[in-house]
Design a protein around this nucleic acid. Structure first.
Length: 275
DNA sequence: AGGTAAACCTGGACGC
DNA sequence: TGCGTCCAGGTTTACC
């Protein structure tokens, strides 16, 4: 589910319902997701006001004066704001309940994650969690450009697609958008990262920014709604040029798209349009 | 250090 | 209908 556009779409969807709300209690239906949920989450969060919701890479941070809840959606996680009495479904692992509004309606921020590759951790005020320490620049910031990719890629023999998905190089790019950006930039995903010219990296950085920006505008590839129980799909899926289209005709030249594993991830590309 | 593969989980799609 | 197999949008960990 979640690459940067999906996480950012989640953040924006949560914003009006969560920011400024005061936490009344935290309910952990299981003690861990990918890692144990630290005691601070249940001990410090209640009573705190959510001052802001930030995104760093594919992580979300719920900021309070006591510290920040740090969430990652993993492969299958989702967050929704619901009426507090909404029946629990399978894999609803965590509830963060808010104080009732003036009309007495109580809402809950509910974390569902079937595969439990996600996490809920704690970042004390004025500290940077170790998971965030080694991350590369945000792809939509001015710190990310072709020169950055060019400099970081020198001497590296790994496939460009693997390199682009390395969160220490640039954050937020996962398997879908790596495939899409490489298609747009006309670069073969298996080419060694260190063998690509500065000029082509400039095209790639531009493609990454364009595809992520566009996907955010369209609400991500899969998710959209955070208040109603039936999560409507994002509107980007139908616009994918190569991802999940192995064997189908290239939308640019009509030749059949190739598919193979690169760095253990399914990869699709056009051997004619991408070199 | 960098590269590669295994590991963590569940559910859905597919073939028999 | 049931069962086995494979696959999935991520990231850490171990090992070479």
């Amino acid at each position: 589910m979640p690459e940067l556009p999906e996480v950012e779409t989640t953040r924006r969807g949560l914003l009006p319902h969560v920011e400024g709300q005061r936490v009344s209690s935290v309910l952990l239906r299981r003690p861990d997701l990918r890692w144990p949920i630290p005691p601070e989450v249940a001990e410090l969060l209640p009573g705190q006001r959510i001052e802001s919701i930030r995104r760093r890479a594919k992580y979300l941070l719920l900021d309070t004066h006591a510290g920040s809840a740090l969430l990652h959606l993993g492969m299958s996680g989702s967050l929704r704001v619901l009426p507090a009495n909404t029946p629990v479904r399978t894999h609803d692992h965590v509830d963060i309940l808010f104080n009732s509004c003036s009309l007495g309606h109580q809402r809950v921020l509910r974390f569902n994650d079937p595969r439990r590759f996600g996490c809920l951790l704690w970042q004390p005020t004025n500290e940077v969690h170790p998971l965030l320490a080694g991350l590369g620049p945000e792809p939509l910031s001015d710190d990310f450009d072709g020169d950055h990719l060019f400099a970081r890629s020198r001497g590296r023999s790994a496939p460009i697609k693997t390199f682009l998905m390395d969160q220490a190089v640039v954050v937020g790019v996962g398997n879908i958008y790596a495939a899409e950006a490489l298609f747009i930039a006309g670069i073969s995903p298996s080419r060694a990262a260190g063998s690509i010219s500065r000029r082509r990296y400039q095209a790639l950085a531009d493609a990454v920014k364009a595809i992520l920006t566009h996907a955010i505008e369209r609400g991500g590839t899969t998710l959209r709604d955070f208040i109603s129980p039936d999560g409507a799909p994002g509107y980007f899926e139908q616009e994918l040029l190569v991802y999940s289209r192995g064997g189908l005709p290239c939308k640019r030249c009509g030749r059949l798209l190739k598919q193979a594993l690169i760095g253990q991830r399914a990869s699709v590309w056009c051997a004619h349009c991408q070199r």
